[in-house]
Design a protein around this nucleic acid. Structure first.
Lengths: 211, 211
DNA sequence: AAATATTTGTTAAAAGAAGCACAAAGTTTT
DNA sequence: AAAACTTTGTGCTTCTTTTAACAAATATTT
């Protein structure tokens, strides 16, 4: 039973990674079956919401039994596109760029980081794991013919829009932006901002307004 | 005219940092007044939503004129609690911990990073800007009497829950978690998770499901 | 100083998301 | 093999969030 891609709301989609993470943990604990009710207590959503979320993509469960953990994990991996391969580059090889390059889990999920690009000459020439740090001036020539799908912006906010413009023209298909700026890209390009300070400011708000 | 802290929905609160960021930019461009309509085109929310958001906290605008940029920026800073001071520590001095320690803007907004804690002896003893990297075993004794408000978890996922437990017992008032794990803390403690891979997985989903 | 143009704050309506409830379909026990 | 139990998938209801509309207030122009 497959439905897929009716038009699932963003609210649902943004919960998928959490399901994915929890199911992975269950697998590691050799749990093979799970009900929406059990999931509910672990994940903090209602059982009803979990069933409704999963049903956007297909009937993966079985009445009286629940869900097969391994099967559901695979389905969600597939729905999220984690069975595909994405050529990825990182612009900015400071601490944050290096942190992401070092995070080997991304590689395992198909996000292949091919190179970092940096303007600071003291960092150019380094290797992060086996990933080279190249001069940012080589970006265009390096990427030619390589079908780069994802560009990660780890620069300061001043350079972010310029870098985004270059990435758009390569062209990349998606930009993952860590610079604390609201960059502008064409609608055809997938853009995800990770504004770290936003969540810190929310902490500040919540601390100030605790009952 | 002040209302404040009725009960503003999280949806509204999570938009405040974006207003804050945009207003800062306008100030830097010496823009002194702005209407909700102009803000709308820049920020991508409807003018109606902007007016309604701001009105949760007070009537900062004026009919026929709009909003005073500087005044509104100050109000939002105050609402977010960015006029307060927060003693902060970071657990884990790898690339990510260092990246955050190096990001001087947090310091400017009142988040004073007092120390990093690390178990890898090769990192203990370093200084990031003027912030010392201490042995994680000293965490308890170091924090005694220092009124640490925010703990930042930059460890791997295996250590995250243990570190969270230690932080809860210090006690800190809030935890900012960057480890890719769903840690559990008492309800009384403010918890913000930054699961980097979540947004990467969303990129993957959107790339796969583009029309 | 009067007339016209802006633009807010706010109420009402529409759209969207989450929760409830239960028949249907399976599993487990007796 | 029948009875009792479990749990999904789904229609319906409730709650939340967003958008639209407009009177009231101020600014600007004539």
């Amino acid at each position: 039973m497959k439905k897929e891609v009716k038009d699932v709301s963003m609210a649902v989609i943004r919960r998928l990674p959490k399901y994915h993470r929890l199911l992975k943990e269950l697998m590691e604990k050799d749990v093979t079956r799970i009900s929406s009710k059990e999931l509910s207590t672990m994940i903090g959503f209602t059982a009803s919401q979990i069933r409704q979320d999963l049903n956007c993509f297909g009937g993966f469960g079985q009445q009286g039994y629940g869900y097969d953990v391994g099967e559901l994990y695979n389905e969600i991996s597939r729905i999220l596109g984690l069975t595909s391969h994405y050529n990825t580059i990182i612009i900015g090889a400071g601490n944050l760029g290096q942190a992401i390059a070092n995070y080997s889990n991304f590689e395992k999920k198909g996000f292949h980081i091919m190179a970092l690009f940096e303007k600071n000459p003291r960092l150019v020439g380094l290797q992060i794991r086996d990933i080279p740090v190249l001069d940012v001036d080589e970006l265009g020539s390096y990427c030619e013919g390589k079908n780069i799908e994802i560009g990660v912006i780890c620069t300061n906010k001043e350079s972010a829009q310029d870098v985004a413009d270059v990435l758009v023209n390569l062209p990349v298909k998606a930009i993952w932006n860590f610079a604390p700026a609201d960059i502008i890209v064409p609608d055809s390009i997938v853009l995800e901002n990770v504004h770290l300070s936003d969540s810190l400011y929310i902490i500040s708000y919540l601390l100030k307004n605790q009952e």
